Amino acid sequence: MKVEARIFDLVTAFCFFIAIVYGVTTYYWSGYGVEPVGLVSLILTGGLALIAGSYMRFISRRIEPRPEDREDAEISDGAGEMGFFSPGSYWPIGMAASVATAGLAMAFFHIWLIVIAGVLILITVGGLVFEYHTGPNHE
């Protein structure tokens, strides 16, 4: 988790640095002062990356080091089963379509379409979660 924490630290530093550069350049070049929307979004993006990086750093202290975190690790240390990944699931496509529908519904503020998209999101998330669920074993 230390590798991921470092990545988020770099994103945090980049966002805060660019927020300063953005604030200064818009103040001097726009003629209207600092452009607030871009500045606030950059600061909030840096803050979100800081939260995620802090969480990963906090977790990395409490778990044993993974091969990615150790300097003396060999490639073979990371070998083995990584988990189960569905070979051909259509649920992510349906979920993406339902979330896109929800986004368009909110952009145009059609309440009826927001409700339909919300139901579709619940159905597709449920389908993805329970795709391989076979139920309890009754013997």
Rank of each mutant, 00 (worst) to 15 (best):
D9R: 15
A73I: 08
A5V: 05
I18M: 01
G135F: 06
I43K: 01
F130A: 14
S86M: 10
D69E: 15
E4A: 14
A102R: 04
V129N: 06
G103I: 10
R62P: 02
I93M: 11
L44I: 02
V40T: 15
L50S: 09
A73D: 04
F130Q: 12
T12E: 10
Y32I: 09
R61W: 04
L48D: 02
F108Y: 10
G88N: 15
L122I: 13
R61G: 05
P65S: 09
L39P: 01
S86Y: 07
A102T: 00
L122C: 12
A13V: 13
S60T: 06
G103S: 09
V99N: 00
V119G: 11
S89R: 11
F14P: 00
A100N: 05
Y132L: 08
F84V: 10
W112R: 07
F84P: 00
V11Y: 06
I123H: 05
V37G: 07
S86C: 09
Y32S: 14
G47H: 01
G31Y: 05
V21M: 04
G23V: 02
I63R: 10
V24N: 00
M56L: 15
T124M: 13
I111M: 15
V24H: 02
V21D: 04
G103D: 08
L39V: 00
P87M: 08
W112V: 06
V24K: 00
P92T: 10
T45E: 02
A5G: 12
P65W: 03
A19M: 14
R62H: 14
T134H: 15
T26V: 05
